[in-house]
């Protein structure tokens, strides 16, 4: 018996102006569903970082948020270049973002570390040349 509500988003890799919109929508949904501000913040921050990464580094992808009674699962999947050294990518401050992206305030190299910090569980599956899928769970 597992009640589940799914929210699915396609993340546009071209559009910097709408980057983060899926996360803002999820925040609203979770608030309507009565989750605590802390849970909502953790889910939406982790998802935002993942969403931005797909826009900056992978030319877009998809995001799925599965809401259960006791947890929220976030799955981010892209067909981008993949991450060759995940351990390195996870380090605070490591970033391959180009200068034009940095000038917008991105590329601090804090995205993946934030995702880890704000969730209870995070798993990265990535293959160079094929893409990246990130699974995150926030326990309620």
């Amino acid at each position: 018996m597992s009640e589940r509500v799914n929210f699915h988003f396609e993340i546009d890799g071209e559009n910097f102006t709408s980057a983060g919109e899926a996360s803002v929508r999820i925040k609203k949904h979770l608030r309507d569903m009565g989750f605590s501000p802390d849970t909502i913040r953790r889910v939406s921050v982790a998802m935002y970082e993942g969403e931005i990464n797909m826009v900056i580094h992978a030319n877009g992808g998809s995001a799925d948020v599965d809401v259960y009674v006791d947890r929220i699962e976030i799955t981010l999947a892209d067909k981008g270049p993949g991450i060759s050294n995940i351990e390195l990518a996870m380090q605070e401050g490591y970033s391959t973002a180009p200068d034009n992206i940095r000038s917008l305030g991105f590329g601090a190299g804090m995205g993946l570390p934030n995702m880890k910090r704000y969730t209870d569980n995070m798993k990265i599956e990535s293959e160079v040349g094929k893409g990246t899928t990130i699974y995150m769970t926030v326990n309620v």
């Binding site: 910097f16 102006t17 980057a19 983060g20 919109e21 996360s23 803002v24 925040k27 501000p37 913040r41 939406s44 921050v45 935002y48 917008l104 305030g105 991105f106």
Partner: peptide, 12 residues
Amino acid sequence: NINIVAVASLAD
């Protein structure tokens, strides 16, 4: 830039 809006909204 426009991205500050999402950040402010999500960080509350």
